[in-house]
Nucleic acid binder design. Sequence first.
DNA 1: AACAGTATTAGGAATGGTTATCAATAATAA
DNA 2: TTATTATTGATAACCATTCCTAATACTGTT
Lengths: 131, 131
Amino acid sequence: MRQTRNTPQRDLVRGLLEENYSHPTASEVYELARRENPSISRGTVYRNLNLLAEGGEITRLRMPLGPDHYDFQTQNHYHFVCRSCHRVLDSQIPYDDALNLATANVPGCKTEWHKLILVGLCPDCNIKKPQ
Amino acid sequence: MRQTRNTPQRDLVRGLLEENYSHPTASEVYELARRENPSISRGTVYRNLNLLAEGGEITRLRMPLGPDHYDFQTQNHYHFVCRSCHRVLDSQIPYDDALNLATANVPGCKTEWHKLILVGLCPDCNIKKPQ
DNA sequence: AACAGTATTAGGAATGGTTATCAATAATAA
DNA sequence: TTATTATTGATAACCATTCCTAATACTGTT
């Protein structure tokens, strides 16, 4: 495994996720990071988000709508995404390990992980545009 | 609701999906379509896939990996996606309507639909790269 | 402390998938 | 047949993300 170094940029990205429970997107992390370090580049934010995700420090959430989100919480859990504002919230449905173990789910296929995403309207958007 | 017309291009795209159970991507549909009509444009394929999906004739599948896929089957069902080749297969896990009805899953949020995606290796890729 | 090795950076170009634009074309209703 | 307007092909634009580069700066070893 390739050695990694600590840099102010990486610490900043990690710290921003640690103190943000809103599942920010890469662009949102970039905007937050620029407040602390105006010269940080977009590429650096993406690179560090990827490195932290590969290292298991954070989770990358690929949504059925909109861009990827990042989560400091690494335990398996499900998410809700608002179809209007693309906000991501934690679901309280318990994670079901059995879905990975079942071999008969897809003939010949070995399921390694799964994701369940609930889609609908968040409280804010439900008020603004009820249907 | 805006009126729609039948065009050879639209019929071609619909027909290709109807006879293809492989959940093709837009690019794959485009390649298939060009065999029948070499002058069809990529934009026309995308436009018609979107129109057919909006009209409920086909389903658009947004995957956690790779590009969108399209499915002629419109009944709710779950999918498996290979993390290596991005192939999409039907899962045999029964669709769980209860996941949409549960109101306590995400406080204040109204779930309208959900998707469950299993990720792993398909039989072909499992042979080629076992881990 | 100085050095060497190399991981990381900023900046920008490139990519992939998709959508938007627009003048020309063609399906449908009158 | 004509008028209306949905649709087309071609291409530009878009967005999120990755790749490329020379310059920079960590870090372990002298």
